[in-house]
Design a protein around this nucleic acid. Sequence first.
DNA 1: CTGTTAGCGCTTTCAA
DNA 2: TTGAAAGCGCTAACAG
Lengths: 337, 337
Amino acid sequence: MNSLPGRQNVTAQDVASKAGVSRAVVSRALSNNGSISPATRARVLQVAEELGYQVNFLAQGLNRQRTHLIGVIVSHISDPFRSSLLDGLLGEIQRHGFQALVTEIHNEQELAETLRNFTQFRVSGVIVTSGKPPESLVNQCVQQHIPVVGINRQPDIPGVDYVCSDNVAGATLAAEQLIRAGYHRFGWLNTQNSTWAGRMRGEAFSQVLQQSGVDIEQNLVPLIASQEGYHGGFLAALQAGEGLGVFCANAQLACGFLDGMRKLGKNAPEDFQLIGFDNTPQTEQYSYQLTTLHQDIMELSQQALAHLLARTRNPTQPSQISWVKVSLIYRRTSPSI
Amino acid sequence: MNSLPGRQNVTAQDVASKAGVSRAVVSRALSNNGSISPATRARVLQVAEELGYQVNFLAQGLNRQRTHLIGVIVSHISDPFRSSLLDGLLGEIQRHGFQALVTEIHNEQELAETLRNFTQFRVSGVIVTSGKPPESLVNQCVQQHIPVVGINRQPDIPGVDYVCSDNVAGATLAAEQLIRAGYHRFGWLNTQNSTWAGRMRGEAFSQVLQQSGVDIEQNLVPLIASQEGYHGGFLAALQAGEGLGVFCANAQLACGFLDGMRKLGKNAPEDFQLIGFDNTPQTEQYSYQLTTLHQDIMELSQQALAHLLARTRNPTQPSQISWVKVSLIYRRTSPSI
DNA sequence: CTGTTAGCGCTTTCAA
DNA sequence: TTGAAAGCGCTAACAG
């Protein structure tokens, strides 16, 4: 062995020396970029292996002006849907040979800082699953040819691609199902400070009901939770009247609402019906069995990566937006008819 | 404005030129490292601000041989406890001014690759929440002075620090509570391929029972789930006999078990009692109200970071291990007496 | 096909 | 206190 014990790190130069070639050849051998004879290539690879050579990504990135890093902006990852989405995204990111730089934000200012930090690492792309990035910063990314894609965000920044679940289709399925179940009075459950996706679902629900002849002034009851998540839904149950067909903006609110109603001695589907959104693992559990709209996380993740890669190839192409199909999963709280 | 529109990126040289100083001075101004007169410092900072200068982390890292990145190895992040832990870790990592490189692994081989990739980015530290890193690779980290800390891992690699919830204390609390509740027959629910932490909880439970005079051959029933998570617990309920005081390795199994029992028409605490581990948000919900051992995620995360920082200062110190206190949260499935 | 060379952008001795 | 200069480790254009 000629690797000294205290040796910090083996570099391309070390490999070059031992293989009797120049640094450049080593670079070519490892990146199969630039011509090199199969024989030397093999020899270099062999030596690299022996020496346990690992490319220094910082040096590489500094040169290429780009790393194999993808920045992911998330929030509230202990929320089941969000952690499932992150799960899906990480899978796709890694499948494509990237590594994820994940930052959890708590407000828009952190989002801005994060975006800056990402560019300082010369990431290959940014995925935003939470918050709304300031347009000026996004433009800086665009200028630096760093693709940005938003998931379930309002698609309104030029140069950014979006992938969203088809909220309108989802709301339509929900409305139709509740009408089919014979309901004439409806509830729409959402938090006070809803995301864009949540609001969109509510508006579409209302619109479909109206188109079906429902007097929404009289017969569509807004149930506005003063806080997010399970607890918000639980408390909102106190506001709920009798015999509603309820559509809910997300799974956590829905589970909370269901439990809140149970505490009041009412249950679905006997006393009301309930359709949630997201189809998180919890909604399937025996104690909930919530009828819910399934968001296709695999598809969302795949589309997100596809957009990043496409825009890497063609940075100036017009903003793309894909709507991902949702499907209604019939369970106990609003059974199939 | 003298920043050209198509300008790729403003560098320290740009700032230096405009401020009429050398690159070196700019570096000093921004890192307050090396002496510099307050006046020039202020001027440089001012100019940097105007030009919107951002340090190139790749160049910086290449020089310093270290980035402000911390690698985090996770798995199954859609699991509630794991996503909560990741949440806590990200919070701590960011609070200390680092960014998280998160990789989800599915087997030990991916773990090894990930560890390599982390070192290729010259991370400041590695946190392992899943899997068991090969000792040889960890040693390479140690040699390169990259601190490694394991969370809830078996503490057996020299040079690695560990932070673990106090499983023995938890199991003891559970055993005592079930005994206090008057049980003479007990169940221990775990998955077939358990983590080290899970096994440890089971062994401690058994031991405490034995010390309390329970004939564990006769009266400690092992309930071994053939799969992980909620579903595993659900199916395991079929094996469960009557009138057991059950302790369970984690929250997901416990929720599944509870639901499985309910499906069989049995409920806690009437027909059996159940104590889980983890205190995930779900265990608190109205439909579960699971008595459970709380893992202090904030503390786990803080200790993990503390170890990383300590070892950064003193890379060769002996392996440290901190046991984090757990507490029993009394809820319906095994009420306080 | 291979080697030489000139950087990528920053930090850090070492003199001045 | 400041500047010059030597890298950190790698890539890519250009000759040979």
